[in-house]
């Protein structure tokens, strides 16, 4: 199980903690409200200091619970949006790669190699995956760098990073996380 009960991710952990506090505080609030109601039925008056403080505590707890519930909901929807952003970024990365490869007129084999270069593979493992000689891969990468007008691997990779960083991703309002997860199928 990858996601344990106590999550490693900071936001998830925050949400869990918040939920636990909400639960505890809501139970406390209910206890105080029950107490206040019972006292009222037994004829307590708000002017009685002890009873007044108790009522105030109950109300304060309730307000606290309401605010934390709101906070938890905001946090959860932010986490949702972050997921969406990541998916958009992934989709965008794929688009950027396709666009560049088309522009440079890379062959099918070169596209494959280029993707593996972007994924951080060295020539030797690429040759193993593609079951070709290391020399072939070297020739292909040289051709890729030449077609893309870059001097070598680092500059080639940075082309994509730069492309992703330059344009601000606008998130279309219509892309709800639901719609995206549907389309990710």
């Amino acid at each position: 199980m990858k996601r344990a009960i106590w999550p490693a991710d900071g936001k998830t952990r925050r949400a869990t903690t918040l939920a636990a506090i909400i639960l505890l505080q809501a139970l406390c609030a209910l206890f105080f409200i029950g107490d206040v109601v019972t006292d009222l039925l037994e004829g307590a008056a708000f002017v009685d200091l002890h009873f007044g403080v108790e009522t105030l505590a109950a109300i304060a707890l309730l307000i606290g619970v309401a605010f934390m519930m709101l906070e938890l909901r905001l946090l959860l929807s932010r986490m949702d949006q972050m997921d969406t952003g990541l998916m958009i970024a992934r989709g965008r990365m794929a688009e950027v790669m396709q666009g560049f490869f088309d522009d440079w007129h890379l062959t099918e084999a070169e596209r494959d190699v280029a993707i593996m270069v972007l994924k951080g593979l060295d020539n030797t493992p690429i040759a193993e995956v593609r079951q070709t000689a290391a020399g072939t891969v070297r020739a292909q990468t040289t051709s890729i760098y030449a077609k893309s007008g870059t001097s070598g691997r680092p500059q080639f990779v940075s082309l994509f990073v730069e492309e992703l960083m330059s344009g601000d991703f606008e998130v279309p309002p219509s892309t709800s996380p639901r719609a995206l997860t549907e389309s990710a199928r």
Partner: peptide, 12 residues
């Protein structure tokens, strides 16, 4: 694919 459905409060 993992889709988050149950928030921590629901689970607790």
């Amino acid at each position: 694919r993992d889709i988050p459905v149950w928030d921590p409060l629901v689970r607790l």
